[in-house]
Design a protein around this nucleic acid. Structure first.
Lengths: 182, 182
DNA sequence: CTGAAACTTGAGCAAAGATTCCAATTCTGA
DNA sequence: TCAGAATTGGAATCTTTGCTCAAGTTTCAG
């Protein structure tokens, strides 16, 4: 059961393929055949390293959810601007994972699959973190509500940027953050 | 070729089934079998009324895109609050179509399918309409940028509400609209 | 070196999916 | 009422999908 080096490498190759496919074609484009072709392997190899398609996809989904909220240590000291900048950085520097993240978020909200719970929990944590940062810099009583609007705007802007990369994501995000911070 | 009444009725039944399935399960849950089961018909009947699965789906997608922006006549006289209220109303009163709309928007932006162009055009029109309304009530020079943030926030809030219907969509939307209108 | 465990291949299978065909039935205008 | 077109059911077909299997190759601890 202990993996050899070769196995770990193709495992990464597979996850990369899944990420790319999930990002550009969504669930329906992500077939075993396509995954294997993109990873340059054969079906049998895939099933030697993963229990099934779903497991591989969930691994990538976890990557995506994990990547959106780095430095959980900082919790309690960050500002709205920092949190916003971190999100903008994640989206623009890792567009593939970002696309997966957005897809999951939307899919979770709509389909209610079993990742819906996971995503909802993640989202709540995120709202809390933003709300705490807002409350710290601004004495408004409705910090949570402001955080909800702020996150909604950020997510919406992310979708827009992924749709049309000419969008000034960073600038618009700052504009939104400025509204809340004051 | 001229349709009889019976045909038109089952056609509607099919579109309703597609809308429901698309809304709750996304593209991957929307199979011919599921459509026919939900519509209470047989496969042959489906292919008598539609050229294929894709055509039926596109019909529903068009419905969704069309429903989001009613009263194109009013163009030029509406306020940000009115546009916002109309959107909130659409999302909350037709959640099925709304889910389809959101899914298409996200899918289009990410997958770049051939509906991507259609959706992008629709989105630009929407931004313009909001920008015009903003410019009318507010002398800011960056009406378009504000419209982009506003729409992003609305879409993000819609996703959030579809994910968790306890969200105070209407209240938060008004809060966002207020920021822009002043 | 060596052998057991890990890795890879590629054919093959069962189930599910989309689509076609056609005989049987139902409409509708004249 | 009648003929022709529209509609319908349901079996048949062809493709795709997710997955298994057996046989051969590579890796690496002892």
């Amino acid at each position: 059961m202990a993996r050899y080096r070769a196995g770990l490498e193709t495992r990464d190759r597979i996850l990369g393929a899944v990420r790319t496919l999930l990002s550009s074609n969504g669930l329906e484009g992500t077939t075993i055949k396509a995954i294997c072709a993109a990873a340059g392997i054969q079906a049998g190899s895939f099933y030697n390293l993963f229990e099934g398609k779903e497991q591989a996809i969930l691994a990538v989904v976890r990557q995506a959810i994990g990547a959106v909220d780095p430095d959980p240590d900082h919790h309690g000291t960050d500002t709205v601007e920092e949190l916003t900048a971190a999100y903008v950085d994640f989206i623009t520097s890792q567009p593939d994972l970002a696309r997966v993240y957005i897809r999951i978020g939307v899919g979770a909200g709509l389909g209610g699959g079993h990742s819906g719970e996971t995503f909802l929990a993640h989202h709540r944590r995120r709202v809390e973190r933003f709300a705490a940062a807002i409350a710290r810099g601004n004495k408004a009583a409705d910090a949570t509500r402001q955080a909800e609007v702020m996150l909604a705007a950020l997510n919406g802007l992310a979708v827009q940027w992924l749709l049309d990369s000419d969008t000034d994501f960073e600038g618009l995000a700052k504009l939104a953050a400025g509204r809340v911070a004051s």
